[in-house]
Design a protein around this nucleic acid. Structure first.
Length: 492
RNA sequence: GGUUCCUUGGCCGAGUGGCUAGGCACCGGUCUGCAAAACCGUCUACGGCGGUUCGAAUCCGCCAGGAACCUCCA
């Protein structure tokens, strides 16, 4: 397929034509979650953003190997190089095996991602399962002279690296500024420079998770896992590395340094970063305690929510903003998304009611597909693609209302437009119908009731007619009369 | 303090020099037994001040306000 996909590369801060290293193969690596708590709205953003990329690249005909890691060791509290491991801390607090904590939250993460219709990645490697690879990487960096051992721990020598290569190319920082502004923290006396970061940490006696290594009984530094695992599964150089913008520094900057130090070249060709979800203008995050978990959205069990929200509403809400913009969460914004999505779904479900009344092809309808592709090619501009689907919705509704006559070919084009862009690429699904085997029987029963109401209406028995409508409305159905019958839908 | 970035109509949110998305809400009309929905129409904004240009939301400068990162966070 003719590829015109432009993606914004954080490395040079502009959009570039995407050209894979080894077409038709594409290597995609995305930083996954640290599994020590329930997934919240912030986790949904990168998962959905890169799910769209995964789906679109596959749609374009690429064979994508999508690797999304699970951080289950090495991610420390308070500081990247000192403090307590997040997973281990949770395990200690809850008196569980660390792997019990990991498994519990990983299951919940998977469940939430599944609800959001996020496709599973091709490979989901765990950091703890790749200790050997990480130790090997530390050895290579030591061999090249860009790291040093200190009291059983190994640190990356950032100033030395910076003399031969530039440290800070991704985040736009320079090392002098960092040396002047980095705070003094505990446990840094082992480091030669405050900007150095840990590759291997010697475990304190109370530390639960540790492995043998040439330097000490210990555990790998956080930045190491992504470099080691991406190399193992995608090769020394691969196409796209994604993650949240908050990972640009230091995590991704350190990954670049590790790759260059060990291999002499950068591993990643395109760096992509999704922006944050904010709440009252501030980043939604664990540290600020202002996050809302996905489960709370699905159940509506949160003070800021006026009701429960379907997973698809959350997904649609996220897709209505460009992935590089911050998106400010509010209950009102979510309500607006819910209504908007319902409008799209209804239009799609009603396409079959359009009667073909002419031949030929409507140019405006035909153009929508090209416009949607154009939007997706422009750095995955889902809000523009969605706006075109709303144009299609207007056309569908006009045709049903008899204010516009279209051909069978137009109808097919409209149907295909929704199926390609809304369902296949943006990953929206009909939560009522998909996977619900009893839906058909259920729908027939409602149709039967409404047929009876039609009879009553014909007999001008408004009492019976209104009773059926009102009671169904109370249960949560929305009943609409049309000129040739009726429509219904169940609101959640 | 350093680095990066943002400020669009009642709300959300696209848009990098002229063609000024889209959704939600509101209002008016059509349709309807009533209603709902739908359709049509209305409302037409770009933080402030300058500059460049025939022309700027869009480029440049200054000012104001805000955010992210610099410490774990998607």
């Amino acid at each position: 397929m003719d590829n015109k996909l432009q993606i914004y590369n954080t490395l040079d801060r502009k959009k570039e034509l995407f050209t894979p290293l080894h077409p038709p193969l594409v290597g995609l690596y995305v930083c996954g979650p640290t599994v020590y708590g329930d997934p919240h709205l912030g986790h949904a953003r990168p998962a959905i953003t890169f799910d769209i990329l995964f789906r679109y690249l596959s749609h374009l005909g690429y064979k994508v190997r999508y690797v999304r890691n699970i951080t289950d060791v090495g991610h420390l509290e308070n500081d990247a190089d000192a403090g307590e491991d997040k997973v281990a801390k949770k395990a200690r607090l809850e008196q569980l095996e660390p792997m019990e904590v990991v498994q519990y939250y990983l299951n919940r993460y998977h469940k939430a991602m599944d609800a959001l219709n996020v496709l599973p990645p091709s490979i989901e490697p765990h950091a703890s399962g790749h200790i050997i690879e990480q130790i090997q990487l530390v050895k290579e960096i030591l061999d090249k002279g860009f790291a040093y051992e200190s009291q059983g721990s190994v640190y990356f020598d950032v100033p030395k690296y910076n003399k031969e290569h530039k440290y800070g190319i991704l985040s736009g920082r320079n090392i002098e500024d960092m040396l002047n502004t980095t705070r003094e923290l505990d446990g840094q006396e082992e480091k030669h420079n405050s900007v150095d970061f840990a590759l291997w940490k010697k475990a304190a006696p109370e530390h639960i998770m540790h492995w043998p290594s040439p330097w000490s009984e210990g555990f790998p530094g956080w930045h190491l896992e992504c470099t080691a695992m991406s190399k193992k599964y995608l090769g020394e150089v691969f196409d796209i590395h994604g993650g949240g913008m908050d990972l640009v520094f230091p995590h991704h900057e350190c990954e670049i340094a590790q790759s260059v130090a060990s291999m002499g070249q950068e591993a990643v060709r395109y760096w992509m970063h999704n922006n944050m979800i904010t709440i009252n203008g501030q980043k939604m995050g664990k540290s600020l305690g202002n996050f809302i978990t996905l489960e709370e959205f699905f159940t509506g069990n949160h003070a800021m929510l006026s009701q429960s929200y379907a997973p698809m509403t959350i997904r649609f809400f996220i897709l209505q903003a460009h992935y590089r913009s911050t998106v400010d969460f509010s209950n009102d914004a979510l309500l607006a998304s819910e209504k908007g999505l319902a409008r799209l779904m209804e239009a799609y479900n009603n396409i079959e009611r359009i009667e073909a009344k002419q031949n030929g092809e409507n140019a405006e309808i035909k153009a929508l597909e090209a416009k949607c592709y154009e939007a997706m090619n422009d750095d995955l501009n889902t809000p523009i693609a969605i706006s075109n689907l709303f144009e299609a919705t207007r056309i569908i509704n006009s045709a049903i209302a008899g204010q516009l006559s279209v051909s069978q070919s137009d109808i097919d084009n409209l149907k295909k437009l929704f199926e390609t862009f809304l369902f296949d690429l943006m990953g929206i699904k009909d939560e009522m119908k998909d996977g619900n085997t009893s839906y058909e029987s259920f729908a027939k029963a409602i149709d039967l009731l409404l047929d009876m109401r039609q009879q009553a209406k014909q007999n001008k028995d408004w009492a019976t007619s209104d009773k059926i409508r009102n009671e169904l409305t109370t249960i949560g159905f929305e009943i609409k009369d049309t000129k040739d019958g009726f429509e219904w839908k169940l609101n959640k």
